[in-house]
Design a protein around this nucleic acid. Structure first.
Lengths: 143, 143
DNA sequence: TATATTTCCTACCATTTTGGTAGGATTAAG
DNA sequence: CTTAATCCTACCAAAATGGTAGGAAATATA
């Protein structure tokens, strides 16, 4: 399950995407609009920043904005920054690889094979740019 | 990430599948063969039993065996029994549905839409019968 | 320069989850 | 009646989760 941190982070990034104003957006404003505990959000914003997903400016009128064009940001990036690996078992994770210590031969491990398949199905979806999440027009003829 | 409970449970079920002996298999034997802490395994076996995945017989010579043909058991069933929902957010889970409280309209929630897609890609794989995990012949011509 | 508003940073903390352990009661085969 | 198994209740330490508290540093504006 996605952690609350990750959920808040996603909402924050989408909020910043929806508000591409000239001026950066303050944490207080995001917290109010998105209903995220202020101090907790600060903490999350710091993480997003160290992972280069947002940038900030300090002082009065300071705030946050996306560090790159939204077309280069994906949900997968946010999830990895907040919760770590996306794969369900560590031994198939690309960036967080770890032996799971459960099998003695990764090549033949049946469990690993199955979860590798799962991961390779989820990844392309989670790695889509967040711009693709814009409220879908999907079917302009329906209703 | 998959919990250790779930991993052990999967290994246990696969072990039982691989040992369709007349006599049931003891927890001690499974623990030794699969390197699972004995007492922890007992606890897991109880859970697998209450979820109808295995059955047991007591007394000397007692033990465990699958409660149904392996063709009717899937990794998804084991995961749900151990860790609960498979979906990454609760508001798209079929059997563990819960509002995630994060959006005010599930129909239009962009996050929900994306994770619904993820779930519907993972599920068919995880719901395959464990019989399909038998060491794959895959490509008899390779090497 | 003073003040207000912001980010930044270091702690701390309660609750839940995870990964077990301990000890004994109960059942059944020999 | 002994032995080997399941079953059951309870406990426990460590880690993860979801926050809070308090203040320092930066910057715009009056």
């Amino acid at each position: 399950m996605l952690s609350k941190r990750a959920k808040y982070a996603i909402k924050t990034i989408l909020f910043l995407q929806d508000n591409p104003d000239a001026v950066p957006v303050s944490a207080k404003h995001i917290a109010n609009q998105e209903n995220i505990p202020y101090k907790f959000l600060e903490n999350i914003l710091r993480d997003l920043k160290t992972h280069q997903l947002i940038k900030s400016s300090r002082g009065s009128d300071g705030g946050y904005s996306l560090a790159k064009p939204p077309s280069e940001i994906s949900i997968a990036q946010i999830m990895r920054a907040m919760d770590g690996p996306i794969a369900l078992i560590p031994c198939i994770s690309e960036r967080f690889y770890e032996s799971c210590g459960e099998c003695d031969n990764e090549e033949t491990c049946r469990i690993r094979k199955l979860f590798a398949e799962v991961r390779s199905e989820m990844l392309p979806i989670l790695e889509r740019p967040i711009t693709s999440m814009k409220d879908s027009i999907s079917d302009p003829f329906s209703k």
